[in-house]
Design a binder for these strands. Structure first.
Lengths: 351, 351
DNA sequence: TTGAAAGCGCTACCAA
DNA sequence: TTGGTAGCGCTTTCAA
């Protein structure tokens, strides 16, 4: 056994006296000192380590010391030591989110919480793919869930190389290397298109939001309509529209010329704007033109005529959480893609 | 200088060969090895440390090695070493959030991002005060922003003792020890009440959402109306209402008996539901009853009659971010409270 | 200009 | 049953 001469380091400066003016953040060493035990014992007690038995009096002393100091463990130190965390990271949405997505996120958080994960929404400013992925990777999340299409194959690679055991995209298309919950909005458009066809409509308009950031949804919804009507004698006309009274009025002015007898409005909000504008210029709904929205918002039931709409069925938070958990437990499994978006037409009065 | 005999530790097991089957997460040591320099040099280069000059060839070698390995620094290790982070933590909302709040959060994130903070929304399951605060404190955020009233004085204390340099509440009341951005919803009710009074209404109803979690807003909004009408001959009648057609219909059925000539509906969505129900039973708006909503949602402009509403003025993300930044820089400053909610009536046709 | 090494707070292994 | 201690990945001081 080799030996060498080594300088003994000076004893570290002690933390300021408990009654001192500047109070520093208490560490497990402080708790140990106050309880008169070692840091190891503190760790055992506070983590209820099963393999080690600590006497009840000691336990009590440690607990009391911790409470007295207001000790809170340091997550960074812990996960650094452990080599992994239970953090599931999602980018925070940077666009106004509807009630549907809002509830979805909340459910998911609760469900993942039950599986002992911590969900964190990371406020990426505006970075994309690599850049964003790098920022996320710095936190070493155990899993990353990315809605929409802000992540590419390179980003996935970055995340995996920094230890993410599961990268899951929720969106219209699959990304190389990542699991995918395919929310294929085709089905939404398809349902709407088929419904309009069933109601005898043959000249169908499809509203496309002018607002940026919605193309990932509106594109597939349009394709879905096309698909539903393919091979029939029906026509499909794209109709760019801003969520805005004036733009709707302009569109309504052209309505007779367009000669459409049915329209799918992307969602219920656009339906509402358009419906109002059509009524203002005397177009009868559904007699002259049938209108179908999507998302089944409450406002649809309050419109007159009551709005027909496509109800979206998202997977429950529970299902999704289980799925993420499985992916985390078996990171070597090949990426799976699941279609998870269901669509049902709710037929009311506008079609 | 004292010396002692010390056992030399075995050299640590090297990371698996780069071409090996199992690839572990690259660390700065790996980068150093590949570039043939020390870890210190890697750190200097990648952080552009100004005080130290590194030769250009070395810089290049380090950069290339980092890129080749896909090296991403470990945020936990970094902030552990640094003793602080730039993380601003907010609890993720656990209720469906409207477009107003949604945009507010986004703006704030962007603005704080410009100041080099990282905003993280923490998905607390359902914990309150202490419990939630402890969970947040584990991440050692430099600042914590809490909307609503989920945080008490004890929670504030926990956060501060674990190093949060600023705790800011955004809500109706101030909390001991924390900065407060007072969003006093009184002003909303006050504006609406005063407006209805000006329009000659004397028997005023105030809709109170039955939905849980909105009391923090609805209470003050009601008080505001009361305050605006205090000392006059006007009466105020609270009207519990669920955001739901049936409940609205029930309320409308009682409308004549209630004998109200004006109503403030909490917000535009409740206004919409009630408006529809009133029209269905033949109550004329605004002739029989004036209706005023709040939040100035787009849907208000689309209703017929067009909905009068109270427009809320929130502070800009920029302002708020600067304010948080100041609080972080001077943590010893006494907590400040600022009223930040403005309200303006937008008079349309319903009142 | 570069390297060696200490140490941030924590847990888990081994020894007592 | 408890304590000593190595080491997670990083930055930074001091020394070469």
């Amino acid at each position: 056994m080799p030996y060498v001469m080594v300088k003994i380091p000076p004893t570290p400066t002690p933390t300021p006296a408990p009654g001192g003016a500047v109070r520093s953040v208490p560490t497990s060493a402080d708790v140990a000192r106050l309880a008169g035990v070692s840091r190891a014992t503190v760790s055992y007690v506070l983590n209820n380590t099963g393999a080690v038995r600590i006497s009840d009096p000691t336990r009590r002393r440690v607990r009391e010391a911790a409470k007295e100091l207001g000790y809170v463990p340091h997550a960074a130190a812990r996960s650094l030591r452990a080599g992994h965390s239970r953090m599931v990271l999602m980018p925070a949405p940077d666009f106004p989110v509807g009630p549907l997505y809002s509830r979805f996120i909340t459910d998911l958080q609760v469900a993942l919480g039950r599986l002992d994960y911590t969900v964190v929404q990371y406020g990426t400013v505006g970075a994309h793919d690599d850049e964003a992925a790098r920022a996320w990777a710095e936190l070493r999340p155990v899993a990353v869930l990315v809605p929409g299409s802000g992540l590419g194959p390179r980003g996935v690679e970055v995340l995996k190389r920094s230890g993410a055991r599961a990268v899951v995209t929720l969106g219209p298309d699959t990304v190389e290397g990542a699991h995918a919950l395919l929310m294929d909005h085709d089905v939404v458009g398809h349902s709407a298109g088929a419904h309009l066809f069933d109601r005898g409509r043959r000249r169908v308009g499809v509203v496309l939001p002018r607002e940026a950031g919605l193309e990932t949804f509106s594109g597939p919804r349009l394709s879905g309509v096309r698909e539903a009507l393919r091979g029939s004698d029906a026509t499909v006309t794209p109709l760019p529209l801003a969520l805005d009274e004036d733009d709707a009025a302009r569109l309504a002015d052209r309505w007779r010329d367009l000669g459409l007898d049915g329209v799918f409005t992307y969602n219920d909000e656009y339906a509402m704007v358009l419906l109002r504008a059509l009524q203002d210029v005397g177009v009868r709904v559904p007699e002259d033109t049938a209108v179908v929205g999507a998302d089944n918002l409450m406002l649809g039931r309050l419109l007159r005529p009551r709005l027909s709409t496509v109800h979206l069925e998202l997977p429950s938070g529970r299902e999704l959480a289980d799925w993420v958990d499985r992916a985390v437990r078996d990171p070597s499994a090949p990426p799976e893609a699941h279609k998870v978006l269901g669509a049902t037409v709710i037929h009311r009065e506008s079609s």
